[in-house]
């Protein structure tokens, strides 16, 4: 029996793997060939002062709920954008390194293939879309994400009145049980696209500004189209300081960090 079974079994599994691979690659290909825009963000760590204006702006723009003291202490706070702090050296020669971390909008995003319902998926423009109404809350994407930038609504969010009047009407208010994360302010991208189309022109560099980039006092955050060689992000992405977070995982992030020049060599500046 076993003699008959083994080739059939391996044949079937080879077939299945081939099918999966072709499905996957064909999808990736169609998406890449259709892409006109490749939205990306550059974070200049030399400029970042860790002021967290971006965090506040992101909360205000994207209707991100505050979960309260108790829940936050448990680790359920939601910040699509956060500024991670790392300390280097021993007292008194301590230096703090700030890294603003938000969804890296990976081209090979680990969150996408694991979602059973396509709630997390790759859009034609290379964004990692998050479709709230399709999300059933497996939280698999959040586990798969190496950057920990996905947040789950453990309870229904609550705004004390009249604070609800500041909610952004262009952005959904997410309910309990769905995942959410930085969208690169997709509502602003969509609005800019519609305006540009109404004016019968192409989007130009600077038309779209996510809330974080708009509010960054030292202009450490720059947003734009990587496929446009003349854009500011393209110019900065060519810098020799350009790196990507956890690049070795092969996620192909579209957030580019410009390393602090004074830091890499360990010299005090």
């Amino acid at each position: 029996m076993q003699r008959h079974d083994a080739p059939l079994d391996s044949g079937l599994s080879t077939l299945a793997i081939l099918l999966l691979v072709t499905c996957h690659s064909s999808m990736v290909q169609t998406m890449e060939s259709k892409a006109q825009k490749k939205w990306a963000m550059v974070v200049d760590l030399d400029r970042c002062t860790g002021c967290e204006a971006c965090v506040v702006a992101c909360h205000a723009e994207n209707n991100i709920p505050t979960v309260g003291e108790e829940q936050a202490a448990m680790g359920r706070a939601m910040h699509w954008m956060r500024v991670e702090r790392y300390y280097q050296g021993d007292f008194p020669n301590v230096r703090v390194k700030f890294i603003p971390v938000f969804c890296q909008q990976c081209d090979a995003a680990p969150c996408e293939p694991v979602c059973p319902t396509y709630a997390s998926y790759h859009t034609a423009e290379g964004l990692n879309g998050q479709v709230y109404n399709r999300c059933i809350g497996t939280r698999y994407c959040a586990n798969a994400c190496p950057y920990n930038v996905r947040f789950f609504n453990f309870y229904n969010p609550v705004w004390e009145k009249p604070l609800h009047l500041q909610l952004n009407p262009d952005v959904s208010v997410r309910e309990v049980g769905v995942m959410e994360k930085c969208t690169f302010c997709v509502q602003r991208i969509k609005a800019a696209e519609i305006t540009a189309k109404a004016d019968k022109r192409e989007l130009k560099d600077g038309d779209v500004q996510p809330a974080c980039a708009q509010s960054c006092p030292p202009k450490a955050l720059v947003f734009g189209d990587l496929n446009d060689p003349t854009s500011e992000v393209s110019r900065l992405a060519g810098s020799n300081r350009a790196t990507r977070l956890l690049e070795e995982l092969g996620t192909k992030p579209k957030v580019i960090y410009l390393q602090r020049e004074s830091w890499g060599d360990g010299k005090e500046s």
Binding site: Y121, T123, A124, G129, V131, R134, S172, T183, V186, K190
Partner: peptide
């Protein structure tokens, strides 16, 4: 027209 999810859902 686009049938991308985030054309309408975001």
């Amino acid at each position: 027209a686009s049938t991308d999810c985030i054309t309408c859902h975001y």
